[in-house]
């Protein structure tokens, strides 16, 4: 590891509401160009980890560096402007804004006047969004909202895209599309940190993975190695 990681998480502790110790010293790295996944069950701390990285939650201990810069304690909007996009769990599109306006908000801090290339790119990745530009985001289906949330994040031209449970509640065929797009975005140069309960899909798409259990990283390895790990197969892939 000669090149410093794009995202470097060191010994992160986050306590929720002064009681629930959701993260207990998590360390993880994402290098430029990778797709890395964090798998774990409901309540393992996956969402807390992403929220702490993007500044929505404040850690009690530990540090996060992004592109070599310490971002711990910085406000959310400033971290986002550095090129770290976070697509939250449950999509969180702006329901009373149109599809086009949602995308415009994704590019909020960019100063270029002409964003037509970015819109075209998003509409090429997700043609359904192009057909529904004027529709209110709150009236889209769950899968379309996931696509919009991802498209909106891409409008910022991020260096790192963090996706929290992108497959949650979606039909298998939609999940296929979403994972195809994740691979494609990555090939186009965006580094991806993926958090999933759907361990099989996540590991298939990733080059490396971490297993998070009750706030601690218990395993980390290449995705293929994790796939053949007896414990992972039993606990997360439902295989013997």
């Amino acid at each position: 590891m000669t090149e410093p990681a794009l995202l470097d998480i060191q010994g992160l502790h986050t306590v929720y509401g002064k009681k629930i110790h959701a993260l207990k010293g998590v360390s993880a790295q994402v290098r430029s160009g990778e797709i890395v996944c964090i798998i774990g069950n409901n309540g393992a701390g996956k969402t807390t980890l992403l929220k702490t990285v993007s500044g929505v939650l404040q850690p009690d201990k530990g540090a996060v560096r992004f592109a070599g810069e310490a971002i711990t304690g910085q406000p959310t909007h400033r971290i986002a402007r550095m090129g770290l996009a976070h697509v939250p769990e449950g999509r969180h599109v702006f329901p009373r804004l149109s599809v086009a306006e949602n995308l415009e908000m994704g590019a909020y801090f960019r100063t270029e006047r002409d964003l037509s290339k970015d819109y075209d790119h998003v509409f090429e990745l997700f043609p359904v969004l192009g057909r529904r530009k004027a529709q209110l985001a709150g009236t889209l289906s769950g899968g379309e909202q996931q696509m919009l949330a991802m498209g909106r994040a891409l409008m910022a031209r991020p260096r790192l895209l963090m996706l929290d449970e992108p497959s949650m509640g979606l039909a298998p065929v939609v999940v296929d599309t979403i994972f195809d797009i994740i691979r494609r975005i990555n090939k186009e140069g965006v580094t991806v940190l993926l958090v999933e309960q759907n361990a099989k899909r996540a590991l298939q798409a990733s080059s490396r993975g971490y297993v998070l259990e009750t706030g601690e990283i218990v395993l980390e390895d290449k995705a293929e190695t994790l796939c053949s790990d007896a414990k992972v197969r039993k606990a997360y892939l439902g295989l013997q």
Binding site: T76, H77, A80, F94, E101, E104, M105, Y108
Partner: peptide
């Protein structure tokens, strides 16, 4: 206007607006 749209975005979801780089 872009700022006006950001006001509506904040009114829909303040936390997510921050993730867009909007200084809420």
């Amino acid at each position: 206007t872009k700022v006006g749209k950001a006001m509506r975005a904040c009114s829909d979801d303040l936390e997510t607006a921050g993730l867009m780089g909007i200084d809420s």
